[in-house]
Nucleic acid binder design. Sequence first.
DNA 1: ACGAATTAATCAGGGCACTGAGTATTTCGG
DNA 2: CCGAAATACTCAGTGCCCTGATTAATTCGT
Lengths: 154, 154
Amino acid sequence: MAAVDLTTHPGHLARRLQQAHYLLWNTMVSEEITSPQFAVLNALVAEPGLDQRTVGERVGLDRSTIAEVISRLGRRGLLDKVRDPQDGRRFLLRLTEDGVRTHRKLTVRTARMNQVFLAPLSAEEQSVFFDLIRRVADAAEGLRNPTEPLVAQG
Amino acid sequence: MAAVDLTTHPGHLARRLQQAHYLLWNTMVSEEITSPQFAVLNALVAEPGLDQRTVGERVGLDRSTIAEVISRLGRRGLLDKVRDPQDGRRFLLRLTEDGVRTHRKLTVRTARMNQVFLAPLSAEEQSVFFDLIRRVADAAEGLRNPTEPLVAQG
DNA sequence: ACGAATTAATCAGGGCACTGAGTATTTCGG
DNA sequence: CCGAAATACTCAGTGCCCTGATTAATTCGT
């Protein structure tokens, strides 16, 4: 009797959206490389030689998850991991030839997939879609991440 | 050099949105009961006596995941599982007293959390947010789910 | 009535995501 | 210089999410 309507719950919608994306990715992009894995490849194309923690920060994966993802990409021979001679705690990451090739190939397919995924929305709606999700996600991230006391000094 | 901008990738945004939601849920709603678990409780408040597969359908969880979630809720004593006397393949699910109480308690907290989560958006923006996400998710689901050949027989 | 197809649930296996605890290395304070 | 704090990474544990294969029960066609 006191059941709520989940279609007005942003968390439920976010989960369903991600599931839908997962499915489409699998059929249109790759069954081997996942979307988070592609995000890591992409980060290392943009900034080769990043360490593990920073890559995680760039793509939004915590320390444990990024370790697993990188381990899988390493096993597939898509990236190399070398200890930083300057700082023995860090591992520096760099794509292999194969990693770069894979990233290039998937970039094309991903673009196609995004078009299909967003096809139900007009161009303006797509911009709004990005804007609204980004604002909600950023704000919620900010709640957890006290980015300095936020004082307006001056 | 050929790196793409992930903030224009709906899949990446969907993942970040869900992560943000996960965090907020943990701090504002419950550390014990997860959002998918709440969805299952909610489905059984609306329709007591559903079988496992149907609950999964209602909340958007596949056969394997729904089995795990239900097993956890059962272990916590929030629902009962009895074999359907009419059809020995099915298990009929029903919340316990404790399950109903838990659902009621979390319903209140969830509403509060949704307000905080959506606070960055105006009321109209929130409607648009729901509408756009729902349309994209539904369309993508439809791609995978050929809802009958769609013939207009006359 | 009886074998074949269908259906509900389970199991094995891979991947994502988080927390808390532990290890190794560097940095900082006295 | 040396011990304490900070930092990068690893490990153990829990939970979500999917696929493909298997098992048990029902239904359907002949």
